[in-house]
Each structure stands twice: as structure tokens, then as C-alpha cells.
Nucleic acid binder design. Structure first.
Lengths: 129, 129, 129, 129
DNA sequence: GTGGTCTAGACCACA
DNA sequence: GTGGTCTAGACCACA
């Protein structure tokens, strides 16, 4: 389900965090849905339970999931809004990194705009509203 | 020139790599322009020369700059295209990370498209073609 | 009556303990008043009876409620004073935690004093003597 | 320096978090001051370095300290303000817990006000501004 | 040398 | 059974 690369320079727990966030964003994991327990996930991915626990704790901290004592871990109900100006700043900064990368890969604005629209469309057929 | 934040969790050398790439992409550093030597840059930014050297190595690996033996380090002439399919794959993957982040920040497609266009426009008045 | 948040990191039984203590302190539950049985309370709050029982045990230990064998559980008559120096030490320690928190939240002494008075006034119109 | 009770039900890392926050609030640790390294602190308190690291990470997350890669860990410069309404809500809630406790310990408003002022005065001669 | 990550394995509070 | 904590010990990127 989540493909983890233990040799990557990106920490394993962070790969898991990103994987879960992507699954939620794509609607593969629905709000309220139960995640595997720490131990199940550890067995499935052949990782140490501590590593999974760390990822779950980060995800909880970000508000993506909620741990309920001795009941398990669940995808959080989506909170309506948060901090729009901060959200825009974060996204603009991410977008600018894409623009920098595009420049160095020799991809021009026209082509980049096309790739962006394609991703947005493909995504739309998935989970984003 | 490059604002480095030693408190950031992003390694300093990587901040420098990104700073140089952005400066080149924005046209602040022109192709063929000479960069400060490792020692100059280290003195200017009050950083360890090893850190600067590591950043320069990474930048050279990526083809952004070129060290010319004993003549100094220069911004590389822009290479035409390299590998279009690989470039597209890289960018699509980066764009998808933006989409994931947008979802979790509660920013919808419409708003995201607007932010993307804004960044693209603002950039256009800067250095990208 | 007691709003329990199963998502909180605070154990449910402890939320209940605090809820009962607050209700008693505010006069919502009067001394001598009968509390629901463990089973009633468990049904009402949709919680495990063990959790309620644990809360009742803690409350009895603290002298807030009294179980009278087979007649039920009652809010204890208020005991006159118990151990003044120990009480002061406990409260001073709690107050110091408020001061630490205030510092880190950037709230100065003046403002904190105002908040304290406000709470005290508001409370006065409720149950405390 | 920080007195840790390994038998307490409060996790050790959290005791450390509170200890450091109190030391900073009291001015025992000044902004910009260097904390012992994870290993030093672990040796001093006879704890596992992982436990110290967890406490430091929590503290960094709360903005109390800053870890600077391979330079060490420092008390953060105090950030001017943050979110005043949220701060007030947090403090009011904490204060109300003190009021509840005072009631059950048989301490009346008058006495509690005196204890609060005393703590505030004593503190004032320490580090709070 | 510094903080950060990861594993293996034990134990615990909670429900 | 669930997540959370803790230790012991190894390894790594960074500066």
C-alpha cells in the first residue's frame, strides 16, 4: 500500500507521513476510516513499530489522523478551514520551488502550465473536491 | 544575497543549493557569471567552507554551475533540454506534492489554480522565459 | 452533562473525574446529591463501565464522593479544611504552572492578574463561596 | 538541576519539558543560552539519550528552544506575541482548574487570591518581566 | 562532536 | 488489544 524505500535519504517515518497524507488527499483513505494498528503496519512494511508510531504521532500532530486510546487510529474528519493566508503563503512557496525546478529542467511556462492542468484533472477524478 | 537560516531543519548546504538555483532561475545570476570562491562565500555568509564546498559540488552535479579548474566557478550556460520525459515525470511528482499539501490546507482546486497562475505571472516579470 | 472527548490525550476516566469535581465546585452537583450508578452513567455517556468505575474510585479516594454500600453514590458533604499547609503547597504549585504557561504564551503579570480576577468573579456568581 | 522522578506517572520526557519551560520562565535559562547536549543531559540525569532527545524535540516544537545542527541546542529568543485570544483561553482554562482544586481543598477565594499574589510577587523577583 | 533516525525488545496505562 | 514510553545500542548526515 505505502511503498517505503529504506535506502532513501528521506527518513522512513517521513515517507510514511507523506504516503498517508497522499492517500487521504486522494480519497484512498476516507475521513473516519480506521488505519492499521501500529503493530499491523509494522509487520506489513517490515519496519519497527517505533518507526510507525513516530509517523502516526507526526500525522496526529498535523491533524491528519486521530489516535483514540485503545480503540485505534482513524483518519480525521476534515476540518473546514484553518489559516487561509498562511496556507496561501505555504503553497506559493511550494509552487515557486516547482518553477525553479522547471527552469533547470528546461521546461517552459507553457509546458509547465499543461503539466499542472493535467495533474489537477487526473486528481479530480480521484478524491479532491 | 542568499538568506541562510541556521535554525531551519533544512541543511544549510541545501538551503544554499536552492538559493543559487532560484537566483539563476530568476535571472539574478546570469549564465556565464562568476560565483564567489568557496572562501569568499564562506566569509560573506559566516559559514564553514566545507558547507559551501558541499553546496557547490551538488550544484555542479546538477549542471547548474561549472568549476573551471583554477579559473573559478561559473553559472552554466543553459542546456537546451536534456531528457524531456524524465523532466516531466519529476515535475509531475513535485506538482502532486503541491496538490496533497493544498488538500490538507483546505485550499480547493480553483484557488490553487489561481495561486499557480499568480506565481507564474509574477515570475514571468522576473527571469523565466 | 459531562462532555467527554474520546479524542483527547487526557484519559477518559480522568476527564470524568475533573468533570465531576468541577460540577461539585460550581454547585451544579450539591453535597448529598445522588450520582447516577456506574451502569447508568456508562449508558448515558456511551462509555465502558470499567472506565466509570475507575473514575468513581478516584473521586472517592479524593473525598469528593461517597459510596454507601448498596444505597448508591453521593456527593460528599464538604469537609471543613483537612490540611491547610498541604493545601497551600498544592495550590501554589498549580499556580506556578499557570505562571510558567503565561510566560511562554507572552502574557504579562498585569494581564494575568486581570484574567485571574475575571475567573474569580465569574465563578463567584456560580458556586464557590 | 532538573529533578526527575522516574516513578511518577508523568512521562520522564514531559517532566523534562516542564522543567526546562519553568527554568526559562524563571530566567534561570536565558534566551540564547546553550543547553547541555543530549548526551550530556542524559549522563547527568542517568537517562537514555533518546528520552532527552524526545523532550528537546517537544520543546523545539513548542518554540521554547532551537536545535542548531551540530552546534547544539539553545533557548529561543522570546517571540513577541503569538495568538492573544488563544493564549487567554488557555490560561483561563488553567485558572479554572486551580479554582476547582481550591474548592475541594477547602481554600476560599480570599485565601486563594492571597496565594496567587504571593506567587506572582515571588516570581517577579525571579525572571518574569 | 552534534542532533536525528532506526531497530529490538520490554513494560505500562487505558479501555 | 491499543497506543505510549523507555532503554540499549547502532548508525548517519551535518558542520
Amino acid at each position: 500500500m505505502f511503498d517505503i524505500n529504506p535506502r532513501s535519504s528521506i527518513p522512513i517515518y517521513q515517507q510514511l507521513v507523506e504516503g498517508v497524507k497522499e492517500a487521504v488527499a486522494r480519497g484512498v483513505l476516507a475521513p473516519g476510516e480506521r488505519l492499521p494498528t501500529v503493530r499491523e503496519m509494522a509487520a506489513e512494511l517490515a519496519l519497527n513499530p517505533n518507526t510507525i508510531a513516530k509517523a502516526y504521532q507526526k500525522l496526529e500532530q498535523e491533524g491528519v489522523i486521530e489516535s483514540m486510546r485503545s480503540r485505534g487510529t482513524f483518519v480525521a474528519e476534515r476540518l473546514p478551514e484553518a489559516n487561509p493566508p498562511a496556507a496561501k503563503a505555504t503553497l506559493t512557496s511550494l509552487i515557486e520551488k516547482v518553477l525553479v525546478e522547471a527552469y533547470h529542467l528546461g521546461v517552459d511556462s507553457e509546458e509547465l502550465r499543461r503539466l499542472f492542468e493535467e495533474s489537477l484533472q487526473r486528481w479530480g477524478r480521484g478524491g479532491e473536491k
